[in-house]
Design a protein around this nucleic acid. Structure first.
Lengths: 206, 206
DNA sequence: CAGTTTTTATGCGTCTGGTCATAATATTCA
DNA sequence: TGAATATTATGACCAGACGCATAAAAACTG
C-alpha cells in the first residue's frame, strides 16, 4: 500500500514473524501501522471453541489491522502468520503525521476502507442467502479479482477447504461437498484436490 | 456528521424524500455526498426475489452511501426512505475539496469507515455462528450502543421483526420465535409486541 | 369507533447444513 | 523413498431453520 522506502524514511522497521505466530491479538491496544512485506497473514476472530472466522487473507503489499489507528479502539481481530512473514511497522503517531503531510495517502486509505466495506457488504449479502454455493462463489470471485495466481487462464486457489470454510461460516465437509457440486456443474475445476476457476462464477441455480 | 451550516456554506442543498421512495439505487453512479437531516433510511440490497438485506438503518445526522465518493465505483446498496425524510446533499467534487481543506473532517471519515468495518466484522462473526440468537443479539447491542430511544433505563426497539430479519439474514418467523425465547430467558422484554432491552445482551446459551 | 392493514404469533412438515465416523488422497519431511 | 501428517472425500443421522398456513393482536384510517 504505502511505498516501503517512504515508510523507512519515516522510521518504520521490519519484523519477522514465523508461521503460526501472532502479529497482534483481538482486544489488544494498537501502537503501529502494519503492512505485509512477504508471506500471508490470516486476519480474523477465534471464538471460545477455537473456531476461526477469517475476515481476510492478507497478501504482500497490503496493510491490515488499521481500524485502531483511526478510531482509537482495540484491535477488532487477530492477525496470525499463515506462513513465515515479514511485516513493516510504523508508530501510530508517526503514521498519523504521515497522513497529515500526504493528502494522496490520506485519500488512499479512504478508498481502501471503502473497498473493504464494499466487500463486506457483498459477504453479508451472500451470508444472508444461506446458500453455501453463493457464499463460496462470493469469496472466490473476490479472491480472483484481487489475486494474481493465474496458471494460463486459470486462477488457482491457494486456500484449503478449511480456510474457505472459515471465510464463509460453513463446515469443511459442506465446503468440500459444495465445491464438488460446482465442479460437476462446470463452475470450477478440481484436479488432484486443487481448485481452479476461469471466469467469474455465475451461479446456475436449480 | 458534518455541520449543516458548514455544508450549506459549501453549497449543499436539502432534498425531501417521501416514505418508500428511493434516495439512490445500487449500481447507479454517485454525484453527491448524502447526509440525513430527518427521518430514517434503510440502506441495503434487494435481491431478485425482492428479499431485502439491510446493511444499516440510517439515523438523522448520519451520512450514507459514501463509498463511491472515495473509490469511484457505483453505489454498493440502495437507500430507501423508511419514513418521510430530509436529506442534505453536496456535490461530489465539492465534497472532496471540503475534505482537502478540512483535515479534521478528513480524519472523521477514516474514523467513521473504521467503525463501520468494525461493526461489519462483528456481524459477519455472528453470521458465521449460525445461531439466530447471536445474530439478533449482535444487531440489538449495536443499535443500543448507537441509539437514544430510552424509556427510563430501557432501550426501545423501533424496528419491526421483519426489519430485524432483513438485518440478520433470518426469516420473520425465526426472529419472532427467537425473540420470544429471549424474552422468556429474561434477555429482553416484549410488551404488546414492542421490544425493550436494558443491558448489553449476554447470551445464556444452553 | 368500525373496518382495514400491518405486524406478531404459533403449529407443522420439509429440507439441508451440521456433526460424527471413516477412508482415501496429497503433501511434508526425515 | 517411505512414514507421518494434513487435506479431501463420502456416508448416515439429526437438529433446527425454513416455508407455508392460519390466526390473533396492534396500529392505522377515515
Amino acid at each position: 500500500m504505502i511505498d516501503i522506502d517512504l515508510l523507512l524514511s519515516w522510521g518504520a522497521a521490519f519484523k519477522k514473524i514465523s508461521a503460526g505466530d501472532i502479529v497482534f491479538n483481538e482486544g489488544q491496544s494498537c501502537f503501529f501501522y502494519h503492512q505485509l512485506v512477504s508471506g500471508t497473514v490470516r486476519w480474523g476472530n477465534i471464538d471460545e471453541e477455537g473456531k476461526e472466522c477469517i475476515h481476510a487473507m492478507v497478501e504482500p503489499g497490503e496493510s491490515f489491522g488499521e481500524f485502531p489507528l483511526f478510531d482509537d479502539a482495540p484491535f477488532a481481530a487477530s492477525a496470525v502468520a499463515n506462513e513465515d512473514c515479514v511485516v513493516i511497522r510504523l508508530h501510530k503517531s508517526t503514521f498519523i503525521e504521515l497522513l497529515q503531510e500526504n493528502s494522496d495517502i490520506h485519500f488512499a486509505f479512504l478508498r481502501l476502507l471503502s473497498k473493504r466495506l464494499r466487500f463486506k457488504f457483498s459477504i453479508i449479502k451472500s451470508f444472508a442467502s444461506h446458500c453455501p454455493e453463493k457464499r463460496i462463489a462470493t469469496i472466490l470471485n473476490h479472491l480472483k479479482s484481487e489475486n494474481k495466481n493465474f496458471c494460463g487462464n486459470y486462477f488457482q486457489l491457494n486456500l484449503t477447504r478449511q480456510q474457505i470454510a472459515d471465510m464463509t461460516g460453513l463446515r469443511v465437509e459442506t465446503v468440500i461437498r459444495t465445491m464438488r457440486n460446482m465442479h460437476t456443474k462446470g463452475e470450477l475445476v478440481i484436479k488432484k484436490g486443487k481448485v481452479y476457476c476461469r471466469n467469474m462464477i455465475e451461479l446456475t441455480m436449480a
